[in-house]
Nucleic acid binder design. Structure first.
Lengths: 346, 346
DNA sequence: CTGAAAGCGCTTACAG
DNA sequence: CTGAAAGCGCTTACAG
C-alpha cells in the first residue's frame, strides 16, 4: 500500500517546517506569499490530502450552538433529534454542542438572546430553526449576520438571509408531487380531490399545492380543492365537514401535517371511513395509527432527522476544513406505506 | 463543558500506567485478573468511554478484503460501490481496502483463491458477496471459517454460515409487500395480477412472492400468477407473451430485476402500453426510462449502496472496537416513484 | 516571517 | 506482569 502523504512529507520536500507547511495549507496568516506558493505546489505535486481525524485531534474542541423553539414537537423535536444524534456521533471528533431550546413562538426575543449567548459562550457556529411566524425574523437574521458566526438553518423555511451559510430543508414541491403521484395511481382521471394545508401563503404550503396540482394534471385530473386550516389542527374537523358537504364526491385527499386526526374523525362520523384515498404527511402517532388501520394509504415523510444530520455535517465541514456547503440542501421526502413505516426512520 | 474522561484519568485514578489501563480496557493478555478488575471498575466509575478516533491514530492501519463476482453489475457493482464509498470515507481512519473482483460465476474456484489471498496479504477482515449459484458455496464458507478472519456477507443471500459475523441483505418479504401495497392501491379487488421472477426456489424470490401475495390478499385480491424467467432476462419477452395470451385480463404486474425490458417490449407490441399497472425493482436504465415514460408506475429499490456501507460499518466496528454486530442486518427497500427517482440514491 | 516543542488520546514494540 | 517511550498526523502557543 502506498503510504499516504502527510504534512511531514511536504515539509521535507520543501525544506520548511511542518509548522510553516501547516500555515500554508490552512491559509493562516504570517507567511510570505512565495513560501506559501511553494508549499502549496509541493502539496499538490505529492498528492497531499489532509487527514481530518488528525486535524480534530490537534485542534481544540469545536463548540456549536443549536437554537430552536419549544413548539411543534413533531417537527422541531425531530429536527433537533437528528442534530443531536449526529453531534453525539461526532463527539470523538471533539465537537461539542450547546443546545438552546427557546420558548415563545411569535415573539422571538428569546431567540435573539440565544444568538447573543452563542457569541459569548465561545461557540464557533450556529444551527438554528427559523420560524416563519416570528415577527422579528429579520432582526434575528441581522443578529446572526452581525455575530460573524457561520450559521445554518434547518426545517423548511424557504427564505433565509444571504449571510446564512446553508439552508437545509425538505423539498416541498416534491412532497406535493409525490402525494399527487399516489393519488393519481389510486384514482381514475375523473376523480375529485382536495388538500388540507395550513395557509396558502406560506411558501412551503404553496409549493405543496403546486406540486400536487402538477402531478394530478399529469394524470388528467382537476386541481385539488384547497382547505386552509390556518395552522390550527382543531380546524381540520369542521373544515372537513364543510368540504365534504359541499363536495360529497371527493375521493382523494392530501392531508398536511397535524390535520389528519380531524379528517379521519369526520370521515368516521360520516360513515365514509375507507371510501376516500388519503395521503398524509409525517410520522405522527395519528398517521401511524391511520396507516395501521388501513385508513391512511400512504404518508410523505420529510425526514427531519436527516435534515438535522445534514445541517451538522455542512457546518462541521465548513468549520473544520473550510469546505463551503451549497447555499441550499434540499431533502427529498420519503414515501411511506404500511410496510416501510416499520423502518427505523432517519 | 465537563472534559471527557480519558485513559490517563483512569491511570491516575488507579495508580497504574496508561499502558496497563489499555491492556485492561482492550482485553489484551499479560495482565493479572485483579489489576484488570480494578481498572475496569475505575473506568466504569469515572464514566470512561474510549475515543475511537484517537484509537485509530494509535493503531496501525486496518486492511480489509472485499471479494465479489464480476457479474450482474446492477446488483454487485452497486453493492461494491457502497462498500468502496464507505471505505474511502474511512481512509482518514486508517482503514485500507483490497478489492478483489472475481470472474467465474458458477465455479467458485477463484473466489476460494481470493479468500486464501486475504489471509496472506494480512487482511484483518473480509466483506464478500456470496453467490447462490456457486457449486462450491459450502467450500467457500468453510475456507472463510478456517481463515479465522471475521467476514460479513452482503447482497441478499438468505443462508450464510454460522461463522459469518454478519449478513447484510435487503428485506425480500418487505419488497414483495410494498409491491403488493402499490398494486392494491392502484387496482380494484377483482383485479388479476402476476409476478415475474427468476426462480421460485431461490429464497429471495420465494419471499418476494410471499410478501406480494400477502398484501394482495389484504386488499381482497387473488394470489398473483408466477412467471419464472430462470434468471434469464431474455425469457421475459416470451414469458410475457404466454402469460398475457392465457390471461388477457391481467392488469397489474410486479416485475423482478432485469425482466422489465422484455415485459415493456411485449406490452408495446401488443398495444397494451399503459394499460397494465407495473411495479418494477431496482434502478436500472430500463426501469428509469420506463418510469420517465410513465409506463412503469413505481419501483422497489433494494438499496445496494446502503447495504455496502452498512457492511463496512459492521466490520470496522467489530475489528476496531470489538463491537459485535447483529448476525443479520435487514435493509428496508425504498419506494421509488417518478419524482423521487431524482434523489441521489444511497 | 519561521521553527522547535508540546499536546490531542490512544496503541505498540521494547525493557524491566 | 507492568511501565517508559515513541508514534499516529495534525494544531497551537511560544520563541526566535
Amino acid at each position: 500500500m502506498p503510504k499516504r502523504v502527510t504534512i511531514l512529507d511536504v515539509a521535507r520536500e520543501t525544506g520548511f517546517s511542518v509548522c510553516t507547511v501547516n500555515r500554508a495549507l490552512t491559509g493562516k496568516p504570517h507567511i510570505v506569499p512565495e513560501t506559501k506558493e511553494r508549499v502549496l505546489e509541493a502539496a499538490r505535486r505529492l498528492g497531499y490530502t489532509p487527514n481530518a481525524i488528525a486535524r480534530s485531534m490537534g485542534r481544540e474542541s469545536l463548540r456549536i450552538s443549536v437554537i430552536y423553539p419549544d413548539k411543534w414537537p413533531s417537527h422541531f423535536s425531530a429536527l433537533i433529534e437528528g442534530v443531536r444524534n449526529r453531534l453525539s456521533e461526532l463527539s470523538d471528533y471533539r465537537i461539542e454542542a450547546v443546545i438552546k431550546e427557546i420558548s415563545g413562538f411569535v415573539d422571538g426575543t428569546n431567540f435573539l438572546k440565544a444568538v447573543d449567548e452563542s457569541v459569548h459562550d465561545n461557540s464557533r457556529g450556529v444551527i438554528f430553526a427559523p420560524v416563519a411566524a416570528y415577527r422579528n425574523r429579520e432582526e434575528i437574521f441581522q443578529a446572526l449576520a452581525a455575530s460573524g458566526l457561520p450559521h445554518v438553518a434547518i426545517g423548511g423555511v424557504a427564505e433565509v438571509s444571504s449571510q446564512t451559510l446553508c439552508n437545509v430543508r425538505h423539498d416541498s414541491l416534491a412532497c406535493g408531487r409525490l402525494a399527487g403521484e399516489l393519488l393519481g395511481l389510486a384514482l381514475p382521471a375523473t376523480a375529485k380531490t382536495a388538500i388540507f394545508i395550513g395557509r396558502k401563503t406560506t411558501a412551503d404550503h404553496k409549493l405543496k399545492i403546486e406540486g400536487l396540482s402538477e402531478e394530478l394534471e399529469r394524470h388528467g385530473m382537476n386541481s385539488p380543492i384547497v382547505c386552509e386550516t390556518l395552522d390550527d389542527p382543531k380546524m381540520a374537523f369542521p373544515s372537513a365537514r364543510v368540504l365534504f358537504s359541499e363536495h360529497p364526491d371527493i375521493t382523494g385527499v392530501f392531508v398536511g401535517t397535524e390535520n389528519i386526526a380531524g379528517v379521519l374523525k369526520y370521515l368516521e362520523g360520516a360513515k365514509k371511513s375507507g371510501e376516500v384515498k388519503l395521503v398524509a404527511t409525517g410520522i405522527s402517532e395519528a398517521v401511524v395509527k391511520g396507516v395501521a388501520d388501513g385508513l391512511v394509504n400512504a404518508s410523505i415523510h420529510q425526514r427531519q432527522r436527516l435534515q438535522g444530520r445534514l445541517a451538522v455535517d455542512a457546518l462541521v465541514k465548513f468549520l473544520d476544513g473550510g469546505e463551503k456547503p451549497p447555499s441550499e440542501i434540499l431533502v427529498m421526502p420519503q414515501v411511506l406505506l404500511r410496510e416501510n413505516f416499520k423502518e427505523k426512520l432517519e
